[in-house]
């Protein structure tokens, strides 16, 4: 369970640092919302985002050390505000934002649940955290699968850049077929992750999610340059959430395998 908490703490802190960076620069949908609909001028919107961003970072640092589940809820609300602004912005696939950003919402919530009061694996709150993380990871992967089926231009561009790095020629029809395959794999892995709650062999799906989530998050700074580090950090929950779920499920197994504690009884 300690490993889960560490993974989630990393994910939440990374996400908060990314949102702070986006807020300070005035990038992203929440700035656009504050500026367009919120009645703020540029300086006011930036000030709100900067203050809230720093607050988020401080809370993220506090969560692992303070047994307050509410801190996790507050961080999830902050991520939820970004998610709502993404829907408001109505860019392509915006309607999928709650699913695409599910790991970002679930990571602070489950961290809060795990840190609220130290509990042994198997207890109701821990089990709920595992279910939440698995569900969120599945939602995020399924949504990205749908994006891939819809031939998201940015995804295609990653394939073209990858092919260029390998110095192989990649025609667009081939890239589209590859993206269909990747989308199908994402959806299959999402289903596999849900099965992992009942069937231990399906946990390989969670391990795959961790590796794929890390690779795809790292693609942004690798492809576009180090200034895209926030794009990497904000996607780190896509890797950490399934791995944290995996660690929680493993911990539950170990607890079940432990011999029951027997108490000496008087004759």
């Amino acid at each position: 369970m300690k490993l889960s908490r560490v993974l989630l703490a990393i994910a939440v802190l990374a996400c908060m640092v990314a949102l702070l960076r986006l807020g300070i620069e005035g990038w992203g949908p929440l700035f656009a919302w504050l500026w367009t609909e919120g009645g703020y001028d540029e300086a006011g919107a930036l000030s709100v985002l900067r203050s809230a961003g720093w607050f988020g970072v401080v809370l993220a640092l506090l969560v692992p050390f303070r047994p307050l589940g509410l801190l996790g809820l507050a961080l999830a609300a902050w991520c939820g505000a970004w998610c709502a602004a993404t829907i408001w912005q109505r860019e392509p696939f915006a309607a999928l934002a709650p699913a695409m950003q599910a790991t970002r919402l679930a990571a602070p919530l489950s961290l809060g649940m795990l840190c609220a009061t130290p509990r042994r694996p198997g207890e109701r709150r821990v089990r709920a955290a595992a279910v939440l993380l698995v569900g969120a990871s599945a939602a995020t992967f399924a949504a990205h699968g749908v994006e891939a089926f819809a031939m998201h231009g940015e995804f295609l561009d990653f394939l073209f850049l990858f092919a260029r790095e390998l110095e192989v020629s990649l025609a667009e029809p081939t890239a589209r077929r590859m993206l269909l395959g990747i989308g199908a794999l994402d959806v299959a892995v999402a289903l596999g992750a849900l099965l992992a709650l009942r069937w231990p062999r399906a946990r390989i799906a969670l391990a795959w999610m961790g590796a794929w989530g890390l690779a795809t998050a790292a693609l942004r700074p690798l492809a576009y340059g180090s200034e895209f580090y926030a794009d990497f950090l904000v996607r780190l929950p896509n890797a950490c959430a399934p791995l944290a779920a995996l660690a929680l499920l493993r911990a539950r197994d170990l607890q079940r395998a432990e011999p029951p504690v027997t108490h000496a009884s008087s004759p």
């Binding site: 392509p92 295609l156 561009d157 073209f160 260029r164």
Partner: peptide
Amino acid sequence: EIAAGGEQS
């Protein structure tokens, strides 16, 4: 707003 590589490039 679409793939910049591939056919567009």
